[in-house]
Design a binder for these strands. Sequence first.
DNA 1: CTGAAAGCGCTTACAG
DNA 2: CTGAAAGCGCTTACAG
Lengths: 305, 305
Amino acid sequence: MAFQVRHIPNPKPIREKRTTINDLSRVLGLSKGTVSRALNDYPDISPLTKQKVREKAAEMGYRALSYAQAVKTGQVSAIGLVLNLGSDNAHRPFLTNFIDGISRVVSERNWTLTVATAQGDKNELDTIIRLVDEHKVDGFILPRSKADDPRVALLKAEKVPFVIFGRTQELAGVSYFDVRGEQAMREAVRLFAQEGHERIGFINGGESYNYSRLREEGYLLGLSDAGIAPDPKLIASGGFTKSAGQQLGHALLEVRNPPTAIVCALDVAALGVYRAAEDRGLKIGKDLAVIGYDACRKVDLPHHL
Amino acid sequence: MAFQVRHIPNPKPIREKRTTINDLSRVLGLSKGTVSRALNDYPDISPLTKQKVREKAAEMGYRALSYAQAVKTGQVSAIGLVLNLGSDNAHRPFLTNFIDGISRVVSERNWTLTVATAQGDKNELDTIIRLVDEHKVDGFILPRSKADDPRVALLKAEKVPFVIFGRTQELAGVSYFDVRGEQAMREAVRLFAQEGHERIGFINGGESYNYSRLREEGYLLGLSDAGIAPDPKLIASGGFTKSAGQQLGHALLEVRNPPTAIVCALDVAALGVYRAAEDRGLKIGKDLAVIGYDACRKVDLPHHL
DNA sequence: CTGAAAGCGCTTACAG
DNA sequence: CTGAAAGCGCTTACAG
């Protein structure tokens, strides 16, 4: 490769003195124990003292060094995010937003976000283990839940805190954050049925992910709400890229007695179906109705809460 | 939004005892000072002792706690990456690869990658300042250099180490890593000229970035090599997305006496030009020659080293 | 309510 | 070549 590198030796770490808790204690005429307790809002410190300490701390720009605290408390004030880039990278564009969101709230509280990448599931677990072994983080945010997720098994065993994005199948003792994909799917089917559709297809996402299982459930519930019997030939999975959506769209439309409407678990798949329809000279909204997850969500918000 | 959240109180931090330097010192019958120096490869420790210490450390799975080291040394073994997401997000897809690359080598050395996001240039600097104030990182990797980059001014003033991806205009005292974009551009022009093209257009990247300045220089050098006088009407800038490339391609092709070949500083722009050509019924490679940066690099590697 | 002291897990002059 | 000691910047029982 046509690289060019220049390395300048590091400057001497003349990083100027920061104010320490000793400085603060001296200036205030209080023991550093008291200063520490005031700053950490211990209940046994007088409100007046707390106030004085806080003001002086702000004035002198003091903030405890998190690694000095860690040596006593064990808390490093960092949360870990390990990105498994080994598997399908279709979700990648989303990651930047994910990181951004986490970073913002983490920064607000003067915490820190440590990110590591892994290639493949094995490496992912190893990376997590390394991070906890070395006490680099206090806990994890786990992206992309799988129905049976080895990361939660590991973390529960090690007793390290985590919150997972997406639900796992077994929910006992897991903190999660998720969107209600199943509701959106159900709603979409309801709307299509209301419009008179009877052959409603479904393109699901990646097989091993739990959201797929949930969304398929939602789809099936929607059918059952509408009194339509599910037809296995109208259900496809693996639609987590545009081109996969296109292929699966073609497949569905080639079925004898094809669907007149298609619900997609993922938006990208819906974009692919648009293309498939175009390839076949079908007009979306006229010859074929299509909806993707994001659109579903917007249809009728109150029902999803 | 249709969210669902469940929060389980954190498990008690029963995180089992790790082996400390005290354990190691006891087992080995050496002072912990000696153990520490052996592990850190001090020259005044006997080779035999070093070996014994290392073996035992490996056996007991000992590794120094980086935050405990930090309290003496000031080094936290973390490098910072702050992502400015405020500006054009056209470079976003690249970021995941960037993070991946950094993360890998950082992990190898048992360091850590701390990432923070910022929105806008002001916030970017503030975020950097916060990270150094709180000693969260030992240094920075700076993505996307600008010709005159405020981050390097700041970091130089604060004497904190950094390496920047891309060169700045003023290179005194800055460590950088870069590709030789200017060479690639020059080469591309040379090849086009060799094929007989005389009207060779150029679509540059974002204005404020230094790579754009360098690549334009390369383009102009290429023209001069070939004895072609530059024509300002054949030079466009701001082509850092596909659609921008498409627009600029149209603009260039509408010029009186339009280019027969177009060099693009960025690949995405070249993709846009393909579209523009298609829109106008021009065949790439026949009616119009187009090349983007990545393709340039592959043309004739040895010239770029 | 506050102070004095011990200690977290390391590193590093200083002796010998 | 190695040990004993001090200390980094914090927190937290324990007294009073």
